[in-house]
Design a protein around this nucleic acid. Structure first.
Lengths: 247, 247
DNA sequence: TTATTATTGTAACATAATGATACAATAATA
DNA sequence: TATTATTGTATCATTATGTTACAATAATAA
């Protein structure tokens, strides 16, 4: 949910939005050799949630997902992809929504559109951690990165959504070249291997990994990198952009 | 859409259904070395469409997809999986729906729920061609298998849905073992190779394919098969069911 | 009954991909 | 200038895949 929440709250029938359909986005970043997820908290509730939102009547669902992503990260041209529709009837839980509204001194009627059953389209985004400045919006206390392996308790079925997003990321990592979306413009071979190891949660063989990556002809070697370490400095690489996959 | 269409038609507000959300299912079969898709035609309209339907208020979306599949094939325990959400605003096209209704002498008001914008969750199913008896329901003239490479013009964006389903099938074929869902209980190595070749649309090396499949330890060799051919009879194989993937 | 035929199952070898080890090169530090 | 830890890559071992060949054999024809 975004800045538009206020509009949505007082808009009792949900006029202008597709009814019963929401978007939740798992925004992945990579930092300190850890996968991170962007979470927000709703004011005075202690509830942690994935950034999400609703779809305008005159808007493609994928467009809406990009709008939501932009509203949270201010980034465009980001890898963003659907991965699953969460449509179980028992995921409908009005309690947290009422809590959020109550914390804003808004008491909805029982037939308020936001309290009806929602099906959510899950998206995952891969962003350059260094380019994102998490910014809370008007209804959020905070918007912050959390390590994937130390997430707080999430609202509704958002933990399940994160799990499924990670599975999808793992399954697609090799097949496509999507992993590169998590790195900054330039990176070392070590950075890249570390990213792969973190996502796949297993050690890879250094020599074989390097040989494989170089054989793919998707990397451009740039220059020497200065490192703090007392050892040979690694090359910097750049992902050749013709191969870039945004979605 | 199913037998429930009559209910849905006279149910002007869509009471009991999730609003604006539909399911479309690409049901794949394999016969005569060709991939087949199950299509239906609506009475007196000449419109070809994928079997689809709507979601009950008290039903999981995945449940609804199984219900739709069952209503069309009478099969349970079938591989069925979501693959994409079709949510473009321009896919909203009321003309064919009005045609279908008009052919049944039903003239809907302009705010009839079925004429509103719909987002559709795409599912694909893999079924044993020999076990399916396509049966038209009350609003369909026909329900038949069509070769994937000779489909008639489809309603709305259903061709796009078929295309995306095929891409998904191709991408998942090796990774999972889903292809086996398209074969009957027992099959020859030739049958299996032929299936793979058809789905992937490329020739595979016989010796390597056989070696690979046997090395996976997912096949049980049963007995000699009698063939009409003047040559050595092939073994029959069965897919070891512990590996079975239904969804 | 026996030879012919086409296809199957698999062996054998060639090539390619990956795993494992080793080592020279070298940037920062001492 | 020597030490140190890490990088880049070469080398060999192992595994996987591509290619060719051929014996086995069910149906047909002679």
């Amino acid at each position: 949910m975004s800045d538009e929440f206020i509009k949505q709250e007082t808009n009792v029938t949900g006029e202008g939005f597709l009814p019963g359909l929401a978007i939740d986005t798992v925004i992945f970043g990579f930092h300190d050799n850890q996968l991170k997820v962007l979470l927000l908290t709703y004011k005075n509730t202690g509830l942690f949630a994935l950034p999400g939102g609703f779809i305008h009547q005159n808007e493609d669902v994928n467009e809406a997902a990009r709008r939501v992503l932009f509203s949270r990260t201010a980034l465009t041209d980001i890898f963003l992809e659907q991965f699953y529709v969460f449509g179980n009837k028992n995921r409908h839980d009005v309690a947290p929504l009422k809590t959020i509204m109550a914390a804003r001194n808004f008491i909805p009627l029982n037939d308020h559109w936001l309290l009806k059953r929602f099906v959510s389209v899950g998206y995952y985004a891969l962003v350059d951690f260094t380019k994102v400045i998490p910014t809370p919006d008007s209804i959020s206390d905070s918007c912050d990165w959390f390590s994937l392996d130390a997430l707080p308790t999430l609202m509704q079925d958002h933990q399940e959504i994160v799990n499924k997003a990670l599975q999808t990321l793992q399954a697609n990592l090799d097949h496509k070249l999507i992993g590169f979306n998590l790195l900054s413009e330039t990176f070392t071979m070590g950075d890249l291997q570390s990213l792969y190891e973190t996502i796949l949660n297993k050690k890879l063989i250094r020599a074989a990994f390097q040989r494989k990556m170089l054989s793919l002809c998707i990397l451009e070697r740039i220059a020497k990198k200065w490192t703090g370490g007392a050892h040979k400095a690694p090359y910097l690489y750049r992902f050749i952009s013709e191969n870039n996959i945004l979605s």
